[in-house]
C-alpha cells in the first residue's frame, strides 16, 4: 500500500519550473531521505505533500486523498501528515505544553485529560519533560526542534515530513535531535520523508535515498546501493563534495 504517489507532477513559481515531471511512490512504513544541492526542489517537493505548496500539473495522491482535486480538504489531510520545519515554527505566544496540546484540543477534540497525558508522554519521549512550562524563547534551538517533533506527533500522523530539521542548529545540538528522529521514524507504522544534509544519519535511518537536482528526481535507490555506487554523474559529484567535508 502506498502512502504518497506523484504522477508527472509539475510546480511553477510564475515562469520558473520548480518541479519537473515528478514521479514517486512511497509505501507505508518507509523512511525515505531526500537529498540534493540547495535550490534543487527538495523543500518544494516535500511541501506539496501537505499542500503548503500547490501543484500545477499531474496527479498527487497522499493517504488516499487526491491533492490535484481542489475540493480535497487540506485541513483533514494535514491531520494525518505532520511536518517539522527547519526553523521549528513553535507558537511564540504559547508555552511548550500548549504548543503540543493546542491542535489535538481544537482540531481533533481530544479530551483534555488524555491530551495532557499524551503531551507529557511525548515530552518525556523527547527528553524535555522539565520544560513543559517554558516559553519557546526560553529554550535552545535543539530543544525547540524536539518540541516541534512532539507537537507534530501529538496529532498521531501517519506520515511525517522533515524539512531540513537540523540545518538551523548549532553542531552540538544536532545529535540529540537526530536521536529523536531516529526513534520516531523507526516505528513500523510510521512513514517518513526527510530532507537533510546529514549523510551519516541518512545512511543509518533510511531504507531509500532520493537524489534531486534542478527540480527533477535524478536518482531513486535503495539506501545501501546509493552510497556504494550512485548511478549518475551528478549524484557522484554531489556525494563526493559532501563526504569530503
Amino acid at each position: 500500500m502506498s502512502m504518497v504517489e506523484f504522477h508527472d507532477v509539475q510546480k511553477y513559481y510564475g515562469k520558473f519550473h520548480a518541479l519537473h515531471d515528478i514521479n514517486l511512490k512511497i509505501d507505508k512504513g518507509e523512511t525515505v531521505v531526500l537529498i540534493g544541492p540547495s535550490g534543487s526542489g527538495k523543500s518544494t517537493l516535500i511541501r506539496t505533500i501537505n499542500r503548503l505548496e500547490s501543484i500545477q500539473g499531474g496527479k498527487l495522491i497522499v493517504n488516499n486523498q487526491d491533492l490535484s482535486n481542489p475540493k480535497t480538504d487540506s485541513n483533514r489531510l494535514r491531520q494525518d501528515v505532520g511536518m517539522v520545519f527547519q526553523h521549528f515554527n513553535l507558537y511564540k505566544n504559547k508555552n511548550v505544553l500548549e504548543n503540543i496540546m493546542l491542535a489535538p484540543r481544537i482540531v481533533s477534540h481530544l479530551p483534555e485529560e488524555e491530551n495532557k497525558k499524551q503531551a507529557l508522554d511525548l515530552l518525556k519521549m523527547v527528553g524535555l519533560e522539565d520544560k513543559a512550562q517554558n516559553m519557546p524563547a526560553q529554550i535552545s534551538g535543539g530543544q525547540k526542534q524536539r518540541v516541534a517533533i512532539a507537537r507534530s506527533l501529538a496529532m498521531r500522523p501517519k506520515l511525517l515530513l522533515f524539512d531540513e530539521p537540523t540545518s538551523a542548529l548549532d553542531p552540538e545540538m544536532i545529535d540529540d535531535v537526530l536521536q529523536v528522529i531516529k526513534k520516531v521514524t523507526s516505528a513500523s507504522e510510521m512513514t517518513s520523508l526527510i530532507v537533510t544534509h546529514e549523510m551519516g544519519f541518512a545512511k543509518e535511518v533510511a531504507n531509500r535515498v532520493i537524489f534531486m537536482d534542478e527540480g527533477q528526481i535524478v536518482e531513486d535507490d535503495e539506501s545501501a546501493l546509493f552510497y556504494k555506487k550512485p548511478q549518475t554523474m551528478r549524484a557522484q559529484q554531489f556525494l563526493s563534495k559532501i563526504i569530503s567535508h
Binding site: 501537505n50 505566544n93 507537537r151 496529532m155
Partner: peptide, 21 residues
C-alpha cells in the same frame, strides 16, 4: 509566515490559526 505554516501544518483552519496564534 512560519507561525501560520506551523499552525496550518497541524490541521488547524485558517480561522483557528488566526485566532489562537
Amino acid at each position: 509566515n512560519g507561525q501560520m505554516e506551523g499552525a496550518r501544518s497541524t490541521g488547524m483552519t485558517y480561522q483557528q490559526a488566526l485566532q489562537h496564534i
